[in-house]
């Protein structure tokens, strides 16, 4: 019993959460990865820019009062021939500042992307936990539905759900509801990955003896799933969530580009690209170029971050 006479380690438990994070392997790996730092910086910058769009944007592109049609088709960084006004990224046909529309568009894109992923995540986690923990018919039904859904491209599934949901929405609310329908559609098309990963992790964790110990105590299945298993299954979920975020943003852009997503009154990056491509061959390249670059930067950074996260959280690679 004299084991205690040897101090094991420093008093790690006295440290705060922040300090423990700063000393963790995770933060260490982050500090040593230039890709992670750069992509994190890009994502953070873009998210902040979107959140504070009203403060940053020179104009509010959706306020008709601030629009001047005379400013239409101003090339970037050049003074307009009539008003002598100059715009960082030029203007579109209606004289809207492209930079401002990008900031506002990013808000929609990020909002839809993040909400859709959160929705897919919650749905996938619940279904994954339930099918992994209970097994049997519950599992068979849930996972077969997942298998069937996986045989269709998710963008197709999203379009289908979008169409059906739109059909149920009263006409007068359609534009208002479009964003929410979009979130529902992308979320429903994306839960399968979460469910599969969570189910796999649940199967692994379920067989470990700490779960047996909790069952022995008489804990309810829900308490075991939420309090014991879920925290140990979260690492892969975080990785998938990050990668899914990039995919969801692209999916939203694709839907909007195809004209079935965000309405022109609330243009997302995808809508902007759709609008911009009409002007590409008439010489007004900037209307397409800058939104497309933003989308590329955003999706690429989130994806790289997700890739890095997968490596950093994978204990086998340490």
């Amino acid at each position: 019993m004299a084991e205690t006479s040897i101090p094991l380690s420093t008093k790690e438990h006295d440290k705060g959460r922040w300090q423990r994070f700063r000393e963790s392997d995770f933060f260490y790996a982050f500090k040593r990865s230039p890709v992670a730092i750069v992509s994190f910086a890009v994502v953070a910058l873009l998210v902040l820019a979107a959140v504070f769009a009203p403060l940053i944007a020179p104009t509010n592109p959706f306020d008709p009062a601030s629009l001047n049609l005379m400013n239409g088709f101003t090339p970037p960084m050049e003074p307009n021939a009539f008003t002598q006004e100059s715009f960082l990224m030029g203007t579109d046909d209606q004289g809207r500042d492209v930079f401002s529309t990008i900031l506002y568009g990013m808000r929609i894109s990020l909002f839809v992307g993040i909400s859709a992923v959160l929705f897919a995540m919650v749905l996938g986690i619940v279904l994954g936990l339930v099918s992994g923990y209970f097994g049997g018919w519950t599992e068979t039904i849930i996972m077969r539905i997942a298998d069937v859904q996986l045989t269709f491209p998710s963008i197709l599934v999203a379009m289908l759900i979008f169409g059906v949901a739109k059909g149920f929405t009263p006409v007068e609310y359609r534009d208002q509801m479009a964003i929410w329908v979009l979130i529902l559609a992308i979320g429903l098309s994306d839960w399968v990955q979460f469910a599969r990963v969570v189910r796999g992790a649940t199967l692994v964790e379920k067989s470990k003896d700490y779960v047996a110990a909790a069952r022995l105590i008489g804990r309810s299945p829900w308490a075991i799933m939420i309090r014991h298993i879920l925290p140990n299954a979260m690492s892969p979920v975080l990785v998938i969530a990050t990668i899914s975020l990039a995919l969801a943003i692209i999916a939203e852009a694709t839907l909007s580009f195809l004209g079935v997503g965000a309405p022109p009154t609330q243009p997302s990056l995808g809508t902007l690209i759709r609008i911009g491509q009409g002007f590409l061959f008439s010489g007004e390249w900037w209307i397409l170029f800058f939104p497309a670059c933003t989308l590329l930067g955003l999706a690429l950074s989130v994806n790289l971050l997700g890739d890095w996260l997968r490596d950093a959280l994978n204990p086998r690679l340490r």
Binding site: D209, Y210, A213
Partner: peptide, 11 residues
């Protein structure tokens, strides 16, 4: 109950 693997039996 006490289990075999002390690494797997503590959350």
């Amino acid at each position: 109950m006490i289990f075999q693997d002390p690494y797997a039996s503590l959350n």
